[in-house]
Design a protein around this nucleic acid. Structure first.
Lengths: 210, 210, 210, 210
DNA sequence: TATGAATGAGCGTTCATTCAT
DNA sequence: GATGAATGAACGCTCATTCAT
């Protein structure tokens, strides 16, 4: 599975999509896989280069450093996840709760498609003095905003429990998605996508007062 | 905060609680703090030894290896968390939903008291080929069992949504606790304990059908 | 004295004889000297690197491990010794006993030229559970075969004492060469090459019956 | 097999053979075995203590240091070997060549009885800057003297090749004994004692002119 | 663009030695 | 006499990074 959408060239150059990006693409794919499995610190640049079929120098030529490679990996994964979430919530005219359920379904699919990204996220987020501290703060805000809008849409149509603070609710859903998705991969492969979605949707159903 | 409950001496010997366990205690405390903040791979044994005020050799004399130290750290943290969860759920005669809320509150308090443990858990759990793979599997099962019993108690009294699979529900609550707790520390220190509990309890309220 | 003949690059690649092999050569020479003097376990990789004028990482880049470096050192030394022995025994048409004497002379010269190799051999050979167990078995067999052929040639021309088993005889000569050569260096530098050869040749003269 | 005869107590005390020497004896036996197999540098004081069934501190209490323990081990082994060689050569009235053969037989038996001692000897002798340099020089001289006397006895009765220098001859026999004995253990266990003796005796038969 | 030889700071681990008990 | 907890210097090895080609 190819994991790169944007990708910033080494320096600010015009547009050189062809050969150059092929190298970056291979490196993105290889890193995503390896880092997800063994953690950022547990993977060496040699391994990434070997898995991508290029030399070690090429990694540095294209990304400058291991940290930068990972930062771009995070940015890239979030772009994909956001695009998927928005595609689900975007169906105007539909029931907001149904849209929410579709979104959580998209999140589950994303966790299944990019298991390595999810592992990377939970491994490195919440690390207090981290190289990617700012990167995570930005990306997290973007993702929570998408979820927040979907909750907002629900609250605009249904009577909801106003005692539940909005930020916490988004976070709870966000966290449940990651953890349920990861647990399915690691400990319960037999659990279905819909079971997982239903469990998370319980949060929303509890938010809506009857 | 002191972090050691059990603690096994180098070998199973008579009883030498005084001096020996003091050293192990200091090492446990120092490791918990450092590893939680910077990750298992990001902390050196030198740092742990220095923080505990002992020499590096002493770490190895007492724990054999860095991995073993961390495995014992995990076991220890889970013992504390389990004890707290059980103390909340144990109040027989109370309403199962209230007991559940008390348990989630205990979980939030634990996350606040031992932020490092929660970070360590999410950083290293879900790592596929890991030294602590078995350790995590055992500990996870123990914790989910405690949550599972509390859910069981609710289902015995209230009408619940039988379409929600039990395993997924436990996992969703478990995950929401960790992530909400961690996010509070890292990104939203102003969020109150009760707001967090309420957000997670939405899951349970959604599980109970009206 | 330069000690490298073959030398395998990190991986089997094209041909990059110039720069690369120079480094390996320097490392071979430095190791041979240091390890011979102080034993394999008594020499550190840092020392070898320093003596070769390269960094420690370069040792590992080129040889993978200290053990591998030493294994290649042994193989290399045996290649040289074998070449010398064969050059002496190869003179067809000469008297087999004279050829034998020339061979032992070559062995003495080798011990004098590569004192470190001889010390390394006797230090690490005969170690029962050893990393180089297989290496030694192979190399020993090769060397004994060369000596064995020379003895065979003698037995084909002279009447010999058939009660002396062939394997033991080769071993006795082999061992006497090493020990006499080493003793000369360490305890009796004033002893001449020819005295040493004569002492070992006594074995052959005793083997030939009159 | 018990390996200690003399043994010097920690300090110069009267005579306290009973309990104390039992500890030293156990340590001697354990060290001899372990060091012979894996080399002096390859064995730890912990292992020796464990094998002897005492604590590590006891090793230091009895021997002061690892080096001293080994030095005493060497002294001790040589005492045994010398005693055996002398017992064989001592039979006055017998043919000097027969006495020589008996001596070499004793040497072979010693190598078989104390394989570890032989390995230790060849591993650490010939090491130029060594802690045991002086120890080895003394012990070597003692052993060569015993062999020298036996050769002398032969030369007094038989016509011998005067062109063979005496020192070299002793060394050649000495070395052949060690190497043939060790090779038998390591590579040719099926070889008989008498085959080995015959191979070494070839040296003497070659020394005697007909 | 890409390579790969070389680097060196740093890591996990070992182990001879000490010393209070 | 004997113990074993503690030490710290040193070791083998790793790996992100640099740079000449």
């Amino acid at each position: 599975m190819s994991t790169v959408l944007p990708g910033h060239p080494p320096a600010e150059k015009k547009l050189r999509p062809a050969r150059t990006n092929a190298t970056r693409q291979k490196l993105f794919d290889a890193s995503m896989e390896l880092i997800g499995e063994r953690g950022a610190a547990g993977v060496t640049v040699d391994e990434i280069a070997a898995a991508a079929g290029v030399s070690k120098g090429t990694v540095y030529y294209n990304f400058g450093s291991k940290s930068d490679l990972i930062a771009q990996l995070l940015r890239h994964g979030v772009d994909i996840l956001k695009a998927r979430l928005l595609s689900a919530s975007g169906d105007t005219g539909t029931d907001p709760l149904a849209a929410m359920e579709a979104m959580i379904g998209q999140a589950m699919d994303f966790m299944a498609d990019y298991p390595s990204f999810a592992r990377l996220w939970v491994s490195e987020n919440w690390r207090t003095p981290s190289v990617w501290q700012d990167t995570f703060a930005v990306l997290r805000t973007e993702l929570l905003a998408v979820i927040g809008e979907a909750i907002e849409a629900v609250a605009a149509v249904y009577p909801v429990d106003r005692s539940v603070s909005r930020g916490s609710l988004e976070t709870a859903i966000f966290g449940a998605c990651f953890v349920v998705g990861l647990d399915r991969q690691t400990y319960n492969p037999e659990r279905t996508r819909d079971q997982s979605v239903a469990a998370i949707m319980a949060i929303m159903r509890g938010y809506v007062v009857n």
